[in-house]
């Protein structure tokens, strides 16, 4: 498998990593704000919060995210996966604007443009710059092969 050019399935995995985090965080926030204030002197009450419906939904989404994230890290650099998956923030903002008819300020539009440009920057480069443990061809050799074509 070439580690520089991503397949359609690999793009799908990156897309799921992007979307599941903001949705999971939103579910966690809804669950935690509906609970009474938790003191740092009673940390065990945080464990009890895990079994409330919104927190459980948030955790389920974050488990799905984690499985996809691990898969992505097995064929791409951390510094590639992080910016590439930031597109989820843009997705949530656009969803809020067009579906929930929420107002998006100029500053937010600027944020959306910056994230999109940042993702385009990183997506244009190689996904992996370090040799993988079970890789048949190291990235440098792959570069040389592709350059020789």
């Amino acid at each position: 498998m070439a580690h520089h050019r991503l397949t359609f399935n690999q793009y799908l995995i990156l897309a799921f990593v992007s979307v599941s985090v903001p949705l999971g965080d939103a579910a966690l926030s809804r669950g935690m704000t509906s609970l009474p204030s938790i003191s740092i002197s009673h940390p065990l009450t945080l464990i009890g919060a895990v079994f409330t419906p919104w927190i459980a939904l948030g955790i389920a989404l974050l488990i799905g995210y984690f499985a996809s994230y691990l898969t992505a890290l097995s064929w791409a650099d951390l510094t590639f996966v992080m910016p590439a998956t930031a597109l989820g923030n843009v997705f949530v903002a656009l969803l809020a604007h067009y579906w929930l008819h929420e107002n998006i300020s100029y500053m937010r539009w600027m944020g959306i443009v910056m994230i999109t440009v940042g993702v385009a920057f990183v997506a244009h480069g190689p996904a992996n710059t370090t040799p993988l443990a079970n890789a048949v061809i190291a990235p440098e050799e792959l570069d040389a092969k592709e350059a020789g074509r």
């Binding site: 944020g111 959306i112 994230i115």
Partner: peptide, 30 residues
């Protein structure tokens, strides 16, 4: 940390992307 400990090649393109996304996320929240 990825540059220091994972020895990833964080070139100018990746730094630009990281900074753009970082500032973009901040703007998106305001």
């Amino acid at each position: 940390a990825a540059q220091l400990f994972l020895h990833e090649k964080v070139d100018r393109r990746r730094w630009t992307a990281a900074v753009l996304v970082c500032v973009g996320v901040y703007f998106l929240a305001h």
